[in-house]
Design a protein around this nucleic acid. Structure first.
Lengths: 198, 198
DNA sequence: CCTTTACTTGAGTGATCACTCAAGTTATAT
DNA sequence: ATATAACTTGAGTGATCACTCAAGTAAAGG
């Protein structure tokens, strides 16, 4: 009856994510996308509707990808505090791999969209809230496991941790980031472990 | 013999700084600048040469402005550690004022310029290195004043502090940033004060 | 096989981009 | 007052922006 698209949608979205993640929304042109996705403009618009819609889907792919590591570690059943510390320590690898950018794509998106009403901005904020909720949940589990002091506030700890991660990753974006990131990641991991009371 | 420009250069640069700070480099068009600066394109180009050159000057104005507070506090002769903690605490005011953006303009610039060779990116990095050097200097003075432990590493502490500030300010950019920033700023200030041994 | 239905193609849309420059204007020096 | 040198003006430059659509192509159903 009909014909299927010749490209793999997930593959295209991952490529779009990497390009947007590296260059940001405004600096990425349709020409850039055509080259990287190996798609003509007509195909892009038939499949995704608009540059903004494509970006939104790419952002969701990014968020989905970031979700897995921490969630897996937390659900593995070991010490929640260890999982959080391990997550911090894993940031030292930020500079090794050849990734599109070291900074968080959600943060980059929020910073380059000052209009709080813009759909892209709101999506990025929602996804960041979800990420924050996962950190908070991590500290909640740590408290439930008796790893934290009685008066520890999981919400405050979770938000502080997210803020620290955001800072570390933004800081890591600098050209000489590789020189300092491992030490900063270690500092962050130890500050988490220092919360342990049991 | 000749004629003077009718506008005040510093005033124009402050306005350009605020616009670029808020919208970022790529999303700011010459049309935007013409409106905000109340200058015709010819005047802008006669005075500054190019959009990039104007941005660079605006970025330097930004950096010069950010420099003053901490430097004054450190040079006031009181406790260096108190000056640093006070600087952290002052971040809680980030959300009160009606500023162009809560995030650091240098960080925003680095994040939206992935090409490490671009002049704008290199300028932003240089200015950020200088800011980091001031933090490091603060901890050096604190150590010299006997406020820090013998084995404290001012460089590491300074970079960690800068990373925390970057994170806090980027985090503060979120729509509901006002709800959490004061608590995060207080946490950061206390973590500085916790370093005190004397 | 042919028909149908979708996907692919890429030249082309008007709008906007950063930027230019010749003509007009005005403060200053003489 | 006049000449001069610098500033201001704004229409206009080619390039690029996000996006469209009619024509071409190919896979699936009968």
């Amino acid at each position: 009856m009909a014909r299927k698209a010749t490209f793999n949608r997930d593959d295209i979205l991952r490529r779009a994510r990497d390009l947007f993640w590296r260059k940001g929304y405004h600096a990425t042109s349709l020409k850039d996308l055509e080259q990287v996705l190996e798609l003509k403009p007509g195909s892009i618009y038939a499949a995704f509707g608009s540059k903004e819609a494509l970006f939104s889907e790419a952002l969701e792919v990014y968020a989905r990808g970031s979700r897995s590591d921490l969630e897996a570690a937390l659900d593995a059943g070991g010490s929640p505090l260890d999982a959080l510390a391990q997550h911090a320590r894993s940031l030292s690898a930020l500079c090794d791999q050849d990734r599109p950018a070291r900074a968080c794509m959600l943060v980059k998106t929020i910073l380059e969209h000052p209009d709080e009403q813009s759909p892209v901005r709101q999506l990025a904020e929602t996804l960041m809230d979800e990420a924050g909720a996962r950190f908070i949940d991590g500290f909640r589990r740590a408290k439930a496991a008796g790893e934290l002091a009685e008066d520890a506030d999981p919400i405050r700890l979770g938000l502080k941790f997210q803020s620290d991660v955001v800072g570390l990753r933004a800081f890591a974006q600098r050209s000489d980031g590789a020189d300092v990131v491992p030490a900063l990641a270690e500092d962050l991991a130890r500050s988490v472990e220092a919360l342990r009371v049991a």
